[in-house]
Design a protein around this nucleic acid. Sequence first.
DNA 1: ATGGCTATATGTTATAGA
Length: 259
Amino acid sequence: MKIATFNINGIKARAEALLAWLDAAQPDVALLQEIKSVDESFPVELFADRGFNVETHGQKGFNGVAVLSKLPLEDVVRGLPGDDGDEQARWIEATVVGKTAVRLCGLYLPNGNPAPGPKYDYKLAWMARMATRAKSLLETEMPVVLGGDYNIIPQSEDAASPETWVDDALFRPESRAAFRRIVNLGYTEAFRAREPRPGHYSFWDYQAGAWQRNNGIRIDHFLLSPQAADLMTDVQIDKKVRAGVKPSDHVPVWVALDA
DNA sequence: ATGGCTATATGTTATAGA
């Protein structure tokens, strides 16, 4: 089962590029972030025509997550549990039924800048809430996959110029500690488990020739429960997508599970 | 170069992203 995460930065603007990548990469499941669309405006038929089931959790203008799956999806949950007052569409869960049932969570973790400030407080509170959910999911003893745009640079090795990120919400000590707390519940960070070397990125800013200079950061991640980690056979970043026509500023990352 | 580009809707400017 090939499961991808891709922050597409607007489904309207990215439909063509996304379809081209789906045709080339042939994922079974794609977790999408920043659809920037309400549910009613998401072009479901574009993906249904290619054999995908589609579940969305959108909002007007910003944020928004979705799951595309060639396999059946069950027990869909929209929104990160734990705060009924949170109106931001950043979390969707579903069980994908293949050879093995896998619990999928697609997430778009808050950016948190400027830090310190209310947006940073929201990021850290959201991560604490995510930790609570991640812990509950471990207790199910199912294979669990938490995939998405984490807006976290886990280590210096995950940035081309780490010194420029020192005061940024993506790299501040509290952010990285909150990420580690989730990992330390018992999750495996899929890419880092397979690739110890620095210099692998999933985001390059549109500005200042960041792509041309390879001034990137690695912020799109998969965390796997022990039962999911045992099934992992591959993990890759589809870097070449960034050089395509009208690209997102993020590229797809995917894991293959024997599931 | 102290936000330089991109996307959306609040829409010929503001807001958000990272």
